[in-house]
Write a protein that binds this DNA or RNA. Structure first.
Lengths: 350, 350
DNA sequence: CTGAAAGCGCTTACAG
DNA sequence: CTGAAAGCGCTTACAG
């Protein structure tokens, strides 16, 4: 006890294999300039002695910084969501600063294609060594991904929509399953009636994201309770007030509607509407948890929010690139985030 | 871009302050043997240059290993829960092995006071530099805590029941609030009737843990829906079969019971009972998520499980001791874990 | 293809 | 009270 057994290092390997330190280093990093014979000899010794590289020492003696690019929408009122992944990214950056990791942000306004293209070109012409992005705007980024592939730059998707492509790692949300979950929760609230699925457009969500959630919801209902059905309402040019009349009409025409499912992060707008509205309780389930939602959770206007740990996603993206680039670890191709359920009674600890 | 601005180090400080490296080191670590005048001079320079110590280098040059003791129940059938914190602890250990952190496990059989005392004595006589434990068996550990205090050994509670004492950090579960949450969930399932609170004894849970959850549940109900009330059933010498008769009788006598709340991790035993039982649906809410629960979630026998990220708790405990002992960081006194809600439709991603 | 030596930014005896 | 020097386990030119 207390006797600190020495960890075996490159020096011990060199001595045992009867070569110089530099040679062991070359073998470890698979660098050219070692004869087959020497290489084999060294590898055998490494294996036998159970040598494990000391990353602290390795990093200390290295000099070059590693820059990771982050291509994400800027945080604005209509894309407040991105605040959370960014927080996680910043947190990871702070923790890893000692390991020569640097982050460079490439922001763009959502839906501003011109700006996106600009950022993409900047990234292509940069000397970043890894990239974090989201899969939500597929068309624009194909060229960037091709460039990364060619330059062997690893990239990680967050908030990803099942794209295996050649990313180092894809951090995903189970969309279909989140729709099933929402259906299950509605089914605890009422056992027959209709769920209105609100498609609020003019956001960055692509149709298949909403579509998958909707499919999951319908799959659950047809398996478990056919007395609940869904109806879709599309509000094409969504803004804070424009939807009120059409929603009022829809609810008036369809008194059997008992719940509303808002498959993106805009539930607070709908909740605001219900705050003013008279009439029987309608259950509300949405996505993501914002400060603005608290009031409506407290007032029983929003019942459940399904969340994807966005902060953790950003954090993990940086960590996975770090593990790959610095620790040379194997990184899992897919990370599937849990589906967290937020209610009035547990949001405080989220 | 790419130009690697040099980080300023101890050497730069020494030069600027016109002293030797060792002196700067002494000042940084507040070691004795520096004149007031020199110390002030060095501190001023450190402040002006914005010097930040390089922990990698610091760790590399240090030699002594840091051993953390872990005093937790061994993993057995009746205390399977502890598998999860242990997993988190092992994970953290692996990640921090490079930083000279070592873990030493001190296991004991639950309820075996003799063994607990033995382990406590071993810990007192060991040279550990930090301790991880749980607050669930208060009486036995007071002497150990007193010893830690005296030796200035930091300790961290996981699965903690609001004990601020002098721990470095207390990783807590909001018990009262979890009872409120369970009540809220029951209230989505039915709007009048009775909730049976099952006290299954012969576990390590102390009465106040169950009691707080019960209080939370009643508080929610009296605030939100007085048409739902609770009833307690105590099963003193709980084992897998002994409870069946009394439960059957209770349910027979009280047809108004619509839900059962099991405020510890034994819900699977109750679910097994309901699997065989005929009759109307009774909603079940329990704590913690085990492999055995899956079947019952899938069959709609267990409706909700409230979980506390036990793995993360173990992980965090090690990390906090690491931050305190090695990184010399300020550590938050309290970490409150989120209340995760697990259902049939999201357990797969937990 | 191989090796000796300096250096990364600290800590730790040791000498004065 | 202060400093010079060796060393932690690697990487990186440089020389051969």
């Amino acid at each position: 006890m207390g006797k600190d057994e020495r960890v075996i290092g490159i020096k011990d390997v060199a001595k045992a294999a009867n070569v110089a330190l530099a040679t062991v280093d070359r073998v470890i990093h698979n660098r050219a300039g070692v004869s087959k014979k020497t290489k084999e000899k060294v590898l055998k010794v490494i294996d036998k002695m159970g040598y494990q590289p000391n990353i602290l020492a390795s990093n200390l003696s290295k000099s070059k910084k590693i820059v990771l690019g982050v291509l994400l929408p800027e945080i604005s009122e209509e894309s407040g969501y991105w605040e959370f992944p960014m927080k996680g990214i910043i947190k990871a950056q702070k923790e890893l600063a000692q390991y020569r990791i640097k982050i460079k942000i490439y922001n763009f306004k959502q839906n501003n294609n011109e700006e996106i293209r600009k950022r993409i070109l900047e990234l292509i012409n940069s000397d970043i060594q890894g990239l974090i992005l989201t899969s939500k705007f597929a068309d624009e980024i194909e060229i960037l991904l091709a460039d990364c592939k060619q330059k062997n730059r690893p990239y990680v998707f967050i908030d990803s929509n099942i794209r295996k492509i050649d990313s180092l790692c894809s951090i995903q949300q189970p969309l279909f399953e989140s729709g099933e979950l929402a259906a299950q929760l509605f089914n605890y609230c009422f056992t027959k009636g209709e769920i209105l699925i609100l498609h609020l457009k003019k956001t960055m969500d692509t149709e298949d994201i909403i579509g998958l959630k909707e499919k999951g919801m319908n799959a659950y209902l047809s398996d478990n309770n056919q007395a609940i059905v869904t109806k879709s309402l599309i509000i094409p040019d969504f803004n804070e007030n424009g939807f009120e009349n059409v929603l009022t009409k829809t609810l008036g025409d369809n008194p059997q509607i008992k719940g509303i499912f808002i498959p993106n992060s805009k539930v607070a707008y709908i909740a605001k509407y219900f705050k003013k509205r008279e009439g029987k309780k309608i259950y509300l389930i949405g996505y993501d948890f914002f400060y603005d939602d608290i009031e409506f959770l407290e007032n029983n206007i929003i019942d459940f929010l399904i969340c994807q740990r966005p902060e953790e996603q950003g954090y993990l993206a940086v960590v996975k690139l770090f593990e790959h680039l610095i620790l040379k670890k194997e990184v899992e191709k897919e990370i599937i985030m849990p589906l967290d359920i937020i209610t009035k009674k547990n949001y405080k600890y989220y």
